[in-house]
Structure formats: structure tokens, C-alpha cells
Design a protein around this nucleic acid. Structure first.
Lengths: 365, 365
DNA sequence: TTGTAAGCGTTATCAA
DNA sequence: TTGATAACGCTTACAA
């Protein structure tokens, strides 16, 4: 059943039926009732392609992800995606997911935009000097960035306070007495990794400290990397007493390395991790529970969807720039450093390990 | 630049230009060259909506996922999605991702199909008597199922040999001497969980064994569930000596529960897990390395994309039914049961734990 | 080998 | 408040 047939059946013109269906004001109430009734009865659904062609709007937003960056599609991205999908599902729009070889990325954006396949994009994992921003701006395609970059153009973004979060986490460890702290971070090109490192260094610098090169690791955020990196450091005669890491997956690896070295997390070494709130691996169920810099990435995905839609409907970029604060959640994985022992201790952490209560701060929305 | 303008510029009709661009044979070679050249020069991209309207093809496949089933979007789904996206990216098609409240699921399929928004669907996580299959068949919408269901209609699917895999895994543990084996599985409504349980029970039955009710757990496949379930069982005076679990995430929780109970995996308890090959958490990096029933879900996603496209282009359902074998990979998490001790042992598993080599079997493609 | 013209199913303009 | 009618940009009979 299409519009023509429906109109014929009703003895009305297509115009009137279309108006009635789309909620235009200049339609008699009685007419509208008839039309809606008939549409329901015949289960009429306007053809998407025809509508797109007529309106010039694609009714679609897209998010691209590179497929050959480490051959790894990471779970943080998918949490973001879940939130985004959830938001888009509340609208009439569609969400198009596109994998793309990294070297064809810009070309893919161009193709999608030029063919009118999408109305806007979500950009994730921006890098330093990210070229996508200039490209899409030049194309005139609406977009929103999850994170920030150091480019000249103004653009819409939603970011979290990575720098502040990591500064606070490191400061906290320093307060407890730690002096040798390692940072396991994402790829060095990613701005969020740079922001985190900046915050981390700032906290150290405030106490006149500076990390040795070996203490900073940039690599994919997996259990395996966390394990390998921590193992290497824990073998050293003078090992770090604390770790700040960019993902609970990295933390998982650090815990394993600590166990293997006969060290007890929350006593012999402290660990604090950025937690995107991956639903299948929760910091509070770590053993011991993992202290975190918390910022639910799924909520960010949801909000990104809202912001992109506002952007598409004409809201200016400078009205679409948000930075969310992050929560620091203290748990038993963090404690004052211990007199460095032989590394052979095996008992469990004291149940009464001194832990400050988690502040009750929530991100917006 | 649209077709009309391009044609005008070339001094040709739209028809000829369209033909040249779409590779029709009845176009003079010289003409085609000119057209392609001009198209490149002006960076002409056919408008997607217009093409869709004219051809009646949406150029899109969709995959839906429920948002309120446990509020959990699981990483196995996203691995599937990654593979699917990778395949679709090699085509001109689009992949539409839709979240949907579980109670509006069927309606969402209907809406998408009726509005001509998609050419076909991938159905994931089928349940017993899954209603989506009958619905989509009635609608005449092409689809492919990841997994199988017990419905009357013929349909296209790709599944793995869940039953065989779990039968073999359980049989192996029995061979080693285990008699009390627990199964941690997904939601009981899911056919893959049922198939796995059937295989598990068959292996036990072959030796005249039957699991107690407490030994079978159906729940979301998370670390937390694995931990909680294993902890409950390991507290019993007569505890299971082995665990067969449906995900590496569950296995992670089992490992943790074992550690807490002072038990050593690969000595005091054996663990074997189904491994969908989640890239951020690898069975071989577990401590001790985790034996698995292996079947990379990302490859399945890729193949599902291929099969769906074939289905859309008219291939019959009975030519699109595949069941992949699974690999059993032996690792140090599996060993013969031990004389049941007090559960206080703390030493590490012997490095020379008897482990059979992994058979070298690969799934098709 | 090329061109004319109709059609895909909407929305939007303008007049009635 | 309603209705002709013209886009929207492409594909595809059919004719030349």
C-alpha cells in the first residue's frame, strides 16, 4: 500500500493524506482522523527512499571504525556504540555502522556524505591533528566528536575530563606516599591518551617528580598488554609501587602479573584504572575491588546521538561542546606503599585496608 | 553534481551516462571512457535515495539487538557485528544497527521491512520457537539466522556445532576421571545454550552419569556470574572437580572463585570454556592457560554477511545452511581430578601438567 | 550504440 | 482546508 492507493481509497488527494500523516496544522480534524484510521488499517508505511529523495534528508547517521588498527575492535568502542544505538532507536533515524580500512577512512567519509547516504557522523577516537575534522568541516557534513583534537576549526564535541581524572588519580597515589608510579595508556596518537598522560605528569610535577620513560606504556588496551607490561616492570629490582591504567582490561592484566610475582594488589602494589563501565567486567568485582576513574562510556554514546541530531538540525558547534567531569571511586586496590619487601609476601590484603569513601558525583544526564 | 548535469556536460543523455557508469555492455568503449573520466573529475556520486527509489533495493542490511534483556549488550554480539561490518564494508551495501526494546522487536522488523528500509536481516541469538523466523518468512523479507531454532519453516542459517563441542569437552573431562562436572551456560531460552547442555548431558549419559540440578547454571555470561556461581559450588563439601562454561568471561569468574577458595585451576579444579575468540581477553593468556571449545565468532559474522547477500540475491534457503565444526584446544586448565584435599593448597600448578596437544582443525573459510 | 520518456513514492509549491 | 502539479535524481523499457 502506497500513498497514492491510500489517497484513492480515502477519496482524498495525496497531498492531503501526506499532510495529515505528517502532522501539518492545516488539515481538518475529521479528515486527519479518517486518514490516520485508514493508514493504521492498511498498515501503511511511507517508503523510506521516496521520502529521502523528496526531503533531501537521509534520515541516517553513521559511525565508522577502522578495521586494521591492530586488527582489534575494542570493547570500549562497542559500549559507545550501544549507547548511540539506544539513542537513535528512540528516533525515526537509522544508525549506519561502517568498517573501513584505515587508509581509506577519509575517502569513506567523503563517499557517504557526497552520496547523501547520511546526514551526519559520529567521530570516535580522535588523534592529534585529526584530519577528519577539517575534511568533514570542508564537506559541510554535520558531525560530533567523541573526544577532542588540536585542530583550528571549531567543531562539536563531547569529551570527559581525562586530564583532570588522571591528575586526581595520580595525586591521590602521591598523597598516599607513592613515588614510583607507572602509567599504562592507549595508543600515543590518541588525544585521550595524551590528555591522560598530561594529567598524570602534572600531578607528579606538582611534587617535583617526573616519571622515567619505562614507566609510561602506550599500547592497545588489552589484558595481555597489561600483563606483559606489568610483568616487565615488576621484575625490576626497583619496581613501581603503583599503576594508573587506562582500562579495566589493562588492570586485569596488571592483577595477573602481580599475582605471578607473588605480590598482593592493594598492599604490595596499588592499581587505579579508568573505567568506561564495561558491563561484562566490573571494577567492583575485581579481587581486590579496583579503584577507578569512572565515566560510563555508554551514557556518552547516548548523549553523542542527541548532540549530533541537534547539530544536524542546525544548532551551532559552539553550543555543542561538553566536557564531563569524571568520578574517582576508591576501592581496596589502592593503599599506601609498603616497605619494599622481597616480593614474596603471599597473604591476602587486610579486609580493613584504609580506603576513602567514593565521592558522590555523577556525570550530567 | 548530479546525473543530469554530468550528462549535459558530456553532451550525452542521462541514460547513456547511467549505463556507462553501471557497467552495462551496450556502451561504446570511447563513450565509457569519457564518462568515467568526467565522473572522476567532477567527483560525481549517484544519489543513494534516488537510486534506491528507482531500483526498489534499499542497499542495506540490518541487525537488531534487544536493549533491555538484562540491560546487557554482550561482547559476543559485538564480535559478531565486527565480522559482519567487515564483510559489508567490502560491498556497496550499508549495515544498519538498531537497538530495540524486546517487546517491540517484531514490530521493529515489520516496520523496517515494510518501509523498504532494508533488503535483509541478520538474526542473532535465536531462542526456542523463535517467532522472528515465522514473522520474517511471512513478510517475505530475506534473513539469515546466526544459530538455529526449532521452527517449522525452512530458513537460512549459520551455526556452529555447539552440541558436539560441549559433548567432546565433557567427554574429555570424563576420560580424565572427572565425575562431578558443572555447566555454566547462557540464558536457558537460547538455542545455543540448549544445544550445549544437550551435548554436555549426552557425554555424561554415555557413562551413566547425570548432573545434579545445582550443577547447571543458566545466566548472563559475565565475569560476575561466573564468579558467583563457582563460589557457591566450591563452598559445598562435595564440590565439582571440573567446570564447562559457555564463555571466557564466565571462566574468568571461575578462576577468581577458585583462587579465593585456595584452589588451583589445572590441579584442584579443571576448567574448559567455549571461546568465541574475544580479542581483548585471550584464553591462552589465562593463568593457567584456559582450555577451550574454539569457534571465532567474528568469522561467523563475516560469513553471515556473505550468506545474507546471497539470500537477498535469490539463493534458496536450503542452499544456505551451514554448521561449522568447532576446535577443542587443550591447555593447562584441564587435568585429571585430584584426590580431594582440604581445599587449602596454595602452590602453583606444575609446569609439566599433562596436557594433550591441540588438534589442528580449522573452521571453513 | 544512443536517446526519449515513463516511473519509482514521496514532499512541497502554489492556486483554488 | 484541499488539490493539481512539479520536483527529487536515478533506472529502465522501448524506440530510434
Amino acid at each position: 500500500m502506497n500513498l497514492k492507493e491510500l489517497a484513492a481509497h480515502l477519496g482524498l488527494s495525496q497531498t492531503t493524506v501526506s499532510r495529515a500523516l505528517n502532522g501539518y496544522p492545516d488539515v481538518a480534524e475529521a479528515t486527519r482522523r479518517h486518514v490516520l484510521e485508514a493508514a493504521r488499517q492498511f498498515d501503511y508505511r511511507p517508503n523510506a527512499a521516496a521520502r529521502r529523495l523528496a526531503t533531501g534528508r537521509a534520515g541516517t547517521v553513521a559511525i565508522l571504525f577502522p578495521i586494521d588498527r591492530n586488527l582489534l575492535v575494542d570493547p570500549h568502542f562497542f559500549e559507545l556504540l550501544a549507547g548511540l544505538a539506544e539513542m537513535i532507536a528512540r528516533t525515526e533515524m537509522e544508525l549506519s555502522l561502517r568498517a573501513t580500512p584505515i587508509d581509506e577512512e577519509l575517502e569513506t567519509y567523503r563517499r557517504f556524505a557526497a552520496a547523501g547516504r547520511v546526514d551526519g557522523f559520529v567521530l570516535s577516537s580522535p588523534t592529534r591533528g585529526d584530519r577528519r575534522i577539517a575534511e568533514l568541516t570542508a564537506l559541510g557534513a554535520p558531525f560530533i566528536v567523541h573526544g577532542r583534537s588540536d585542530v583550528a576549526e571549531p567543531y562539536a564535541y563531547l569529551d570527559i575530563d581525562n586530564e583532570g581524572g588522571f591528575r586526581k588519580a595520580a595525586a591521590l597515589l602521591i598523597d598516599l606516599g607513592h613515588r614510583d608510579i607507572a602509567l599504562f595508556n592507549g595508543d600515543a596518537l590518541l588525544t585521550f591518551a595524551q590528555d591522560r598522560e598530561r594529567g598524570f605528569r602534572a600531578a607528579l610535577a606538582a611534587q617535583g617528580l617526573a616519571p622515567e620513560a619505562s614507566r609510561i606504556v602506550n599500547a592497545p588496551m588489552t589484558e595481555e598488554v597489561g600483563h606483559r607490561s606489568a610483568r616487565a616492570l615488576l621484575r625490576e629490582a626497583s619496581r613501581p609501587t603503583a599503576f594508573v591504567v587506562s582500562s579495566v582490561l589493562l588492570a586485569l592484566g596488571v592483577y595477573r602479573a602481580a599475582r605471578e610475582a607473588g605480590l598482593v594488589v592493594g598492599r604490595d602494589v596499588s592499581v587505579i584504572a579508568h573505567d568506561d563501565a564495561l558491563p561484562f567486567l566490573k571494577a567492583e568485582t575485581f579481587d581486590p575491588p579496583l579503584a577507578t576513574i569512572l565515566s560510563p562510556i555508554r551514557q556518552a554514546g547516548y548523549r553523542l546521538g542527541e548532540m549530533l541530531i541537534e547539530r544536524i538540525s542546525g544548532v551551532k558547534t559552539d553550543a555543542l561542546q561538553e566536557v564531563w567531569p569524571v568520578d574517582i571511586v576508591f576501592r581496596a586496590s589502592v593503599a599506601p606503599p609498603r616497605e619494599q619487601d622481597t616480593g614474596r609476601a603471599r597473604s591476602r590484603p587486610a579486609a580493613d585496608a584504609r580506603v576513602r569513601p567514593a565521592p558522590e558525583r555523577r556525570p550530567p544526564r
